[in-house]
Design a protein around this nucleic acid. Structure first.
Lengths: 142, 142
DNA sequence: CCAATCTAGTTGATATTGTCAACCATATTC
DNA sequence: GAATATGGTTGACAATATCAACTAGATTGG
């Protein structure tokens, strides 16, 4: 083959970032994992949030999200309430503990992101995010 | 908390990309997984390649790489040769089958990457990679 | 109004990837 | 030559992902 293929830099970055987030959580004695964080942020973002909203919002399997939600309930970070609009469904709601944990985690992630972004202009960061989003869209087109 | 946190675009991209690569491998009847690919590319890049070279090159645990190499040997994609310079160590070498598989996989990944990069200039792509690398370096500074 | 179809969520099973610790054999260092 | 470090392995477990099949409820169309 022509040239020797190097690892995709954005994949290297994703691996490093995720490892660092998990390590930072452990160091802070926070017993949750990155997928928990993503789910909690999802619940926080949506006024009325169901499991399928999280699955779609995070582009994950419904089965996986069901299990994640159960873990978040066990850790008393969220609770379920009946969905007035759909008897099959429940609304996922942050508990006080969940909100407090989310605030801690937000700080942790923000400090990692700040370190990651050192020496870069806002314009560069905006373009980086924009290109990432565009690439996701490109991949989604069938 | 202040603003509602959205998922990091490069993490969304990494998840989507990895899923697509695995799906494409399955569609092509190729019974390997993304970590196998990364390892094979690593072996291909280095003139004299050991397990610890792969572990370091991919920023992965030695234990994980040991297991991956065993799988690659089982699938006859690589083989081990004694390391003349270190009795503890073996050199990992691509087999013919491994080289052929790597070529197929290269095509598959390249077509996914081409699709991902649609509508983007080379300058933009270079900057994207450069920013990713810089972010990795930033995270690595202790 | 009811059958057919779709959807929300669950459960089971399995796959992929990741992490930590402990170990043995070998290499290096002092 | 003892102490320390390193390459690789094994065990155990954790985190994430995927697919299929299922039940209960919602929607659709005749």
């Amino acid at each position: 083959m022509s040239e020797l293929k190097m690892p995709n830099p954005f994949m290297v970055l994703a691996h490093k970032f995720k490892s660092m987030v998990l390590r930072a959580l452990r160091d802070q004695g926070i017993d949750i994992v990155p997928m928990h964080i993503k789910s909690l942020f999802c619940v926080n973002r949506l006024e009325s949030c169901t499991a399928v909203d999280i699955a779609e919002g995070l582009d994950r399997d419904k089965a996986q999200i069901t299990r994640l939600i159960k873990e978040l309930i066990d850790k008393e970070l969220v609770r379920k309430e009946p969905n007035p609009n759909d008897k099959r469904s429940q609304l996922i709601v942050l508990t006080e503990h969940g909100r407090a944990t989310l605030n801690k985690v937000l700080s942790i992630e923000e400090s990692i992101i700040e370190k990651m972004h050192q020496g870069m202009s806002q314009e560069q960061l905006d373009q980086f995010d924009q290109l990432s989003r565009q690439m996701v869209e490109n991949l989604q087109k069938s």
